[in-house]
């Protein structure tokens, strides 16, 4: 395990009668991207608000780079909330400088950093426009700049790609990678599992205020690479069930999930299927997505490891 930059230890936060976060602990490794996942209302925002110092935990503690969290850490943190906005009538450049100076950046430095970033994200010609003149995607970029331009050590991005077109999403993604290379620790929160798989080094899953799972994503990814394929077809399903080289854990009259046996080449299997009397409509790698684990975990089952989850998932294949 990499050394933790941010450590949340047994933190609890309650609003009135409702317990938003219950004894949650998480450990965000230094210089890594950490995916904080969880359904709406799970307590993600509550945890993030405590990390950013907006609210204080009722109990438990938060260590920022080894020190108990204090207001000075706010200037070392960049936070882009999911529900975010800008001052509508304020000019782009002025607005970024304002937000950066609130982070404690001297105005001159903030201005330089702003110009640099506007250039980088292709917004220079918009710098004197009001927010209302900008498209949603451009506003997202402005928000991103005001989150990162003061070079925070900890960056918290909540759904940073929502509302961005693919080109701009890629642009932001590159910048996130670059910031990571420069040593920034990043907490990344999203519902889009493919983004998590692509970007994150670690994931933490929270449900009903409790941490359900926290792990290195490379382990998770390795298990995701189980050779399960989905086959949609027209014809007699018996033909499929009788074919060698794979098991069929799940089948209907129109589609099946097949699990390739050790050493089998998917291309070879596909060829065999096409040459069979069946009409093959789809042949597609099926990744048991984080989403599935996510749904199962949050619908009330006890916390479990990914290994356990994958064992259950592949039970039919091992019965053969």
């Amino acid at each position: 395990m990499d050394p933790a930059f941010l450590q949340v230890e047994a933190v609890t936060k309650a609003y009135d009668q409702h317990i938003a976060v219950n004894q949650a602990s998480l450990s965000v490794p230094s210089g890594k991207i950490y995916g904080l996942l969880g359904p709406n209302g799970a307590g993600k925002t509550s945890i993030i608000r405590m990390i950013t110092g907006i609210t204080m935990p009722d109990s438990g503690k938060i260590l920022f780079n080894g020190e108990p969290l204090n207001p000075d850490h706010a200037r070392q943190t960049g936070y882009m909330p999911e529900e975010r906005g800008l001052y509508k009538k304020m000019k782009v450049r002025e607005q970024i400088i304002y937000l950066l100076s609130l982070k404690g950046m001297p105005v001159r430095d903030a201005a330089n950093a702003t110009d640099e970033w506007l250039e980088k994200l292709d917004l220079t010609e918009w710098k004197d426009h009001k927010t209302t003149d900008l498209s949603k995607g451009m506003q997202q970029k402005v928000q991103f700049i005001s989150t990162v331009a003061h070079r925070p050590k900890l960056l918290i991005l909540d759904e940073p790609f929502s509302g961005l077109d693919p080109v701009n999403a890629q642009l932001i993604e590159q910048e996130i990678y670059r910031l990571k290379e420069e040593g920034t620790t990043i907490i990344f929160s999203t519902h889009r599992m493919e983004q998590v798989e692509e970007l994150c080094d670690y994931i933490g899953l929270i449900s009903k205020g409790q941490m359900m799972l926290e792990d290195d994503i490379t382990k998770v990814r390795r298990q995701f690479q189980k050779p399960i394929y989905r086959v949609d077809f027209v014809g007699d399903k018996q033909i499929l069930e009788d074919m060698p080289g794979f098991d069929v854990p799940k089948i209907t009259d129109k589609s099946a999930m097949i699990l390739l046996r050790e050493g089998q080449d998917p291309k070879e299997i596909m060829k065999r299927l096409i040459e069979s009397p069946l009409e093959i409509i789809t042949f597609q790698l099926h990744l048991p997505r984080l989403n599935e684990i996510f749904i199962e975990l949050v619908t009330g089952k006890a916390p479990m490891t990914l290994e356990e989850r994958m064992t259950i998932d592949s039970t039919p294949s091992t019965s053969n």
């Binding site: 110092g53 706010a74 909330p81 975010r84 906005g85 001052y87 609130l102």
Partner: peptide, 9 residues
Amino acid sequence: RIVEVIVSS
């Protein structure tokens, strides 16, 4: 919703 950004600083 800019307030959440502001109160983080």
